[in-house]
Amino acid sequence: MNNQKHSVLKRCFHWINVPSLAIMAWSGILIYWAHQAYVILPKILVDKLNLHHRLAEGMGWHFLVMWIFALNGLGYCLYLILSGDWRNIFPRKKDFQELLPFVLHDLKILKTGPDLREIYNPAQKMAYTSAILMGAGLILTGAAIFKPVQLGWLTSLLGGYEAARLEHFILLVAIFLFFIVHILQVMRSGWNNFRAMVVGHEIEKE
């Protein structure tokens, strides 16, 4: 189909991320709860989420689903390179110059938005590219905590074991914020746009 917005492969990579990231975040919190180094989770939340004494279970899920998340991410990166789709996603110089009017229009400060001649506007490109980088960062910092002896070079590169753990945590917060903004933007864009991520293309206006 030549009016396709999202290829089958891209949609697969996208939707596999949803449950794998959800399980990674949840099991990661089970692990984090055993030693809360940065943020003390409120007791109500801990009781509601039933986080007590579930470290072993958290590790079990984390070290299983990490492979799905990592392989899916790797597959997506290969896809971006081989299909040439990276050109649609990675921001170029002009995207940084054109960013402001798009953001102002999104925030409803500018009434008329600039024309979009590509699949993604500059803000989207930057958000999606940073999401890829956050995913890669989560995998690297995670590996550095997971195997600080066998992958000691990586742990040292990231500033040591404690630093890698903090970086892993910060990236979790960052990708969570991305997720929130992503959901809000998808809701604002409406059904047709969401539908395209499922079926591949938007309904053509005839």
């Binding site: 692990i31 055993a34 030693h35 600080p148 074991y161 753990r165």
Partner: peptide, 10 residues
């Protein structure tokens, strides 16, 4: 060297 506890502290 780092003594690393499975709970997360080192």
């Amino acid at each position: 060297t780092d003594f690393r506890c499975i709970e997360g502290w080192s």
